[in-house]
Design a binder for these strands. Structure first.
Length: 286
DNA sequence: CGTATTCCCTGGGGGC
DNA sequence: TGCCCCCAGGGAATAC
């Protein structure tokens, strides 16, 4: 389940292993993987062959690879997507969707995605920032992220704080897992109305969001090895560092109260009933 | 217009 | 053992 730390790990790997290389061939193995590229698979391949990848960049959970043509490859991993750097002789992955080869005959770049929520597209003239993702807010690790603007955005809204954390046009990179973890650290229930939060409380919440993302990025870096970019969210920190996510019924690491799981937008929210009491009346969900 | 819900997709796992 | 249904979840599209 790639959120900001996983996508950042992938970005670093692609920048290291793919930047500076010229694309030789492009194979689209599943049309759904490029459904956002409206001109279709043939155009996708044609426009990319011969182009040199200059870098790997990230906005929230989106990646883009600027090309020497001024265009960019835009990608989203969805929830099961991986970008792997693999030697040509490595057997095809079961869910291999797109393969790039390079004219240096070095390792291939492969987009692998079991559930095809993710995808790739070419953004015309998108090398600096693809127009397709211009609506995505900066992430809280970005030096240009504005805490004041975020606070103002929360104040303008009539919604719950967890919904706000997941709104990528307000703050990007945070998904269900890290939202739950940051709210636990901040001792806030996700159903708190955003306009009931004080400025200092929002500041503390942002601090916890940054802490949890930063800690995860550090561990995510270890999932690399010399030959391939691994986007394996389960390995590494997942089991060790989580305090609430996936821990229903297990004791809160702070107070020992069993962690609760509640339905939330067709998924789940995890929290400590004692550290994160439900808001009183306003904002209570039936 | 702003906010909330729906839908896309597949394999692992639990219940029966 | 096998089948069926639930579950995971980002974000665009749609509904309210």
């Amino acid at each position: 389940m790639p959120e900001l730390p996983e996508v950042e790990t992938v970005r670093q790997g692609v920048a290291r292993w793919v930047a500076g290389r010229r694309i030789a061939t492009v194979e689209v193995h599943h049309p759904r993987a490029i459904r956002r590229h409206l001109p279709g698979a043939e155009h996708f391949a044609t426009v990319l062959v011969g182009r040199t990848v200059l870098d790997a960049c990230r906005r929230g959970k989106y990646l883009w690879l600027p090309l020497d043509s001024g265009d960019a490859i835009v990608g989203h991993l969805g929830m099961s997507g991986q970008l792997l750097v693999q030697p040509a002789e490595a057997p095809d992955e079961t869910h291999l969707r797109v393969r790039f080869t390079f004219d240096d005959d070095g390792p291939q770049l492969r987009f692998v995605d079991q559930r095809t929520f993710g995808g790739l597209a070419v953004s015309e003239g998108g090398a600096a920032l693809p127009a397709e993702i211009a609506h995505i807010a900066r992430d809280p690790m970005d030096p240009e992220f504005s805490d004041a603007d975020f606070l103002a955005g929360l104040r303008r809204r009539r919604t719950e704080v967890k919904r706000a954390l997941l709104d990528q046009t307000l703050i990007s990179g945070v998904g269900n897992i890290y939202a739950d973890e940051a709210l636990w650290r901040a001792r806030l229930h996700g159903a708190r109305q955003t306009d009931t939060l004080t400025g200092p409380a929002v500041g503390r919440l942002l601090g916890h969001v940054r802490d949890v993302l930063g800690e995860a990025i550090k561990v995510g870096g270890t999932s690399f090895d010399a030959l391939y970019v691994n986007v394996n969210g389960e390995s590494g920190y997942f089991d060790r560092a989580l305090n609430v996510y996936g821990r229903e019924g297990l004791p809160c690491t702070r107070c020992g109260t069993p962690i609760r799981r509640e339905p939330f937008m067709n998924r789940s929210s995890h929290s400590c009933p004692r550290c994160q009491p439900r808001p009183r009346v306003l904002g209570r969900r039936s």
